[in-house]
Amino acid sequence: MNIFRLAGDMTHLASVLVLLLKIHTIKSCAGVSLKTQELYALVFATRYLDIVTDFISVYNTVMKLIFLGSSFSIVWYIRHHRVVRRSYDKDQDTFRHYLLMIPCMLLALFVHEKFTFKEVMWTFSLYLEAVAILPQLVLLQRTRNIDNLTGQYVFLLGAYRGLYIFNWIYRYFTEPHFVHWITWIAGVVQTLLYADFFYYYFESWKNNVRLQLPA
């Protein structure tokens, strides 16, 4: 475990905590895309199939359980919680997830490292994670005023992806390795999707104004 990987995981964890904090304490999911959250739940469910077959470390297992538990509970909150569900921007959150899921599944069936159920599912989860933020970014663009917690949530998610790239560069030079093109390309694509958001996030921070994405 290197510092970039640990920082990446902690940033990812922080993003989930920020979102849970918003939902749980403010009892609001305004500006949060249910579509993105459902895609993340699917990402973790398909990626962590190995939680029952392979033991890597206590850290690894605990983190997997946290990401699985948090993603499914966030989806539950937005869909079913008596108060939270009323703040959901249903009419704005119109991205159709199957437009992302089907191409990712097809791509995973054709482009993978090994043709086994677990490996294809793992590859599917990488492709899907790369694009899962899109419904959230579209929703942010439609939202006039983005509240601080939602902005921080997306910022932390983007930072997590960026740190993972540094982690791979570090591992590439320090460990005996295979070149995992699929992971690298999916990861870089995912990080690039945040570039625009980052630009406006820093602009709003620098100018001390509320974050707003141009339509």
Binding site: R5, D9, H12, D50, D54, I56, S57, N60, M63, K64, F67, E113, W122, Y164, N167, R171, E175, P176, H177, F178, H180, T183
Partner: peptide, 10 residues
């Protein structure tokens, strides 16, 4: 190596 390196990541 049975376990490819990326599989220990989250």
């Amino acid at each position: 190596l049975e376990q490819p390196m990326m599989h220990d990541e989250l």
